[in-house]
Amino acid sequence: MRAFTLSESDSRTGSFSSVYRTLHPSLLRYLERLTGEKDAAEDVAQEAFMRLLQRPELTDEAARLWLFTVATNLVRDRGRAATRQSRLLKTSPVPIPTSEPLPDAVAERADEVARVRRALDLLSERDRQILLMRQEGFRYGEIAQSVDVSASSVGTLIARALKRFASAYRTGEVS
């Protein structure tokens, strides 16, 4: 198992660069979906990677789970720190240009995007986190570690979260 660090060693620094290149797109995508805000997602991703610099002992594999967990906690902390910033985990209106009437196709697509976002927002933070982590390819054991539950309960949590998402997406309400 390969460890990376930001020590003076060029090769190790190169290793961190490799980890960054490998993980950043996935982390950013996860955060954008989690928060619904691109700028906030980029800020949080940067901060999480800065914190990763302080954890040279982490292997590449461990770094991935650690990054996603820390980034999720950063989003949560931001939400708690300022009520206005609770939008990070809550509402996130989809920008729709209004200067002129939208073509039907564009309006329909914008409506659908908004519907997906609303459905995600109706879920609990934990539901959102486990669904989005699963979407990024995390295994049950890793998700369990991140949300601090037993691995044997992750299947049930995902199943119920999926049903709640489907209900919210189809009806606008969580059943």
Binding site: E32, R33, A105, R109, A110, E112, R117, Q135, L162
Partner: peptide, 28 residues
């Protein structure tokens, strides 16, 4: 089947969220 259907719905939705404009362009 219900679980898989919900999962596919989520996947489609998340893809939309990630790149809605691209889809609109394609649509147009």
């Amino acid at each position: 089947d219900e679980l898989r259907s919900a999962s596919e719905e989520l996947t489609r939705g998340l893809l939309l969220l990630s790149d809605p404009q691209a889809e609109i362009d394609q649509y147009a």
